[in-house]
Nucleic acid binder design. Structure first.
Length: 523
RNA sequence: CGCGGGGUGGAGCAAUAGGUAGCUUGCCGGGCUCAUAACCCGGAGGUUGGAGGUUCGAGUCCUUCCCCCGCAACCA
């Protein structure tokens, strides 16, 4: 009893978050990309024995939202409600297993934001001052001096006029040195070249204090002790990561997860806020810092033409509906190079699905099970002795056994595309193994013992590969285990060659239907 | 000289601390027949953006130029 409790307490925790998405327009494939990456990582960690907390949500305040709502003749809340429902629906069809969905309009979040603001003010990290800048009357927009283009409005190039507004500042400058050390540590911000970018662009020029409230914005959290001010995005949106864990509330999640391994997955455009402002706020609050902020690249769409004229073929809902959830997940996880931008095209998407999911994985599963049924009937089909083993067998088995550690290594670096590459290398090797061993010849020659070994080895490749593919393509892998007539693994303990797996009554179904790419591209 | 990333066979990408330029996809040819026109093998295709330089030897280091992209207070 006692040991069990200790074991549980010692279980490693893993906390991963997506950014809070900004509900100002339609959700696109880019949002799906980040969320699917996090989902695959979260699932991998769960299967790998970690106690995982996966957070996503929406950042619903700000002037832009208020404006958009007005355009749509809705109240801000009505407007974001609709988009939030919509994104939850998207996560549902993408089979995203998040543990919590936080909205910055949630009561507990608002309360905590106010508490944080109040605390920082009382301890002197926030002070009242004046925010000076420029205002473009026709555009109704404020700009800092740095934003101006040749002294004029960056949007319309007209004259701007001075304006000054009372607001609250966060003493960001105070944390300059600590942030610099953090960024230079080489572990906090990945990929490493982004850290260089931050240091050269922002740290070197010196950090100035940060305006953290706006009097001109109404749609947001009110400064508790001065309600004509609204808390600006920094403290509002960034603090979600701790508020979701019960910070300033029951604190349960904080105790459990915040001190452990914490990973923020963010788009490269918000790396700055997560690696300079956010750690400074945490330092001010006396809280530990996240272990890693990963700034991923962007999924660039091939211009707007395609999306407008053809019913938006890059719309995640459309793609999932038409080609299945695995297709979209697999494409996003596999095709986009780690940390870099990738370009989406329908053709590349469809090609990827056909070559990997259909031809390599689906076909291997089908042909293997079909052979077992043809040559041995649907009777029980289990392990064997070692007397008939060949070099090919041993190499294949060794590769099966090496797979987990290879995949784990890449996943520890959050690199889903390389992890998938490793798995598909084994699956491809199995297709080649079939050609080398020629089971149909073995059958013809009546070499049943040898035939048995070959087919059994193939089934093991499929089983172990499917086990490791669980985090990435949950739908297809579930069907593979149904075809193999095995229980869905709850972890990776059996992700290795096993001599005694009991295979019987299997089904040789088509896992992924082949797509006629030419035809699809014409439509 | 604002900062950063990148320019490699048709396309998308690789090349540990300099040493015969690889992979995937596509194309052409062959093989096999268990399988979803799937699988396996072979081939064609690159003077690695341009020009100099260092070196026995450079995609990989140095100089210079050209081009694309991102960032510069919130588009994932």
């Amino acid at each position: 009893m006692k040991t069990k409790a200790i074991a549980k307490a010692n279980k490693n925790t893993f906390y991963i978050s997506t950014p809070l998405y900004y509900p100002s327009g339609a959700w696109h494939l880019g949002h799906s990309y980040t969320t699917v990456c996090c989902d695959a990582i979260a699932r991998f960690k769960r299967l790998n024995g970690y106690d995982v907390f996966y957070l996503t949500g929406t950042d619903e305040h700000g002037q832009k939202i208020a404006d958009k709502a007005k355009e749509n003749s809705k109240s801000p809340k009505e407007f974001v409600d609709g988009l939030t429902d919509n994104i939850k629906e998207l996560w549902s069809v993408l089979d995203i297993q998040y543990d919590k969905f936080i909205r910055t309009t949630d009561d507990y979040h608002i309360a905590s934001v106010q508490k944080i603001f109040d605390t920082l003010y009382k301890q002197g990290d926030i002070y009242k001052g004046n925010y000076a800048g420029k205002y473009c009357t026709p555009c109704e927009s404020f700009f800092s001096l740095a934003q101006l283009k040749e002294g004029k409005c960056p949007d319309c190039s007209r004259e701007v006029k001075d304006f000054e507004e009372e607001c609250y500042f966060f003493k960001l400058s105070k944390y300059q040195e600590k942030i610099e050390i953090l960024l230079k540590s080489g572990e906090f911000l990945l990929p490493d070249f982004r850290a260089k970018e931050m240091i050269n662009n922002f740290i070197k020029g010196g950090l100035s204090d940060l305006a953290v409230s706006r009097a001109s914005v109404d749609w947001g959290v009110k400064v508790p002790f001065d309600t004509k001010h609204t808390v600006y995005v920094w403290i509002d949106a960034l603090s979600n990561y701790i508020n979701a864990l019960g910070y300033n509330g029951d604190n349960k999640g904080m105790d459990k997860f915040w001190g452990g391994e914490v990973v923020h997955m963010v788009g490269k455009e918000i790396v700055r806020f997560h690696t300079i402002i956010w750690p400074a706020i945490l330092m001010a609050l006396g809280l530990p810092l996240p272990k890693t902020v990963f700034g991923h690249g962007w999924l660039l769409l091939e211009g707007d033409k395609m999306s407008k004229s053809k019913g938006n073929t890059a719309d995640p809902f459309y793609l999932i509906d038409k080609y299945g959830v695995d297709a979209v997940r697999y494409y996003l996880l596999r095709e986009i190079q780690f940390g870099n931008d990738g370009v989406y095209s329908l053709e590349a998407f469809l090609t990827r699905i056909n070559t990997d999911l259909v031809n390599t994985l689906g076909n291997l599963t089908k042909r293997t099970i079909a052979m077992v049924k043809q040559y041995f009937g649907n009777t029980q089909f289990i392990g064997y002795g070692s007397q008939l083993m060949t070099t090919e067998d041993n190499v294949l088995i060794e590769n099966i056994n090496l797979l987990f550690s290879k995949v784990e290594k890449h996943m520890n670096k959050l690199n889903c595309s390389l992890a998938l590459e490793e798995i598909f290398e084994l699956v491809s090797a199995a297709n080649k193994y079939i050609d080398v061993t020629m089971p149909w010849v073995l059958n013809k020659n009546g070499e049943k013992g040898r035939l048995h070994i070959v087919l059994y080895n193939l089934l093991e490749v499929i089983r172990v590969s499917a086990n490791l593919l669980l985090p990435f393509i949950p739908d297809g892998t579930k069907r593979i285990f149904e075809c193999l007539n095995l229980n869905l693994p709850a972890d990776f303990h059996d992700a290795k060659f096993n001599r005694d797996t009991k295979y019987e009554d299997m089904k040789d179904e088509i896992l992924y239907k082949r797509i006629d790419i030419k035809k699809e591209l014409e439509n």
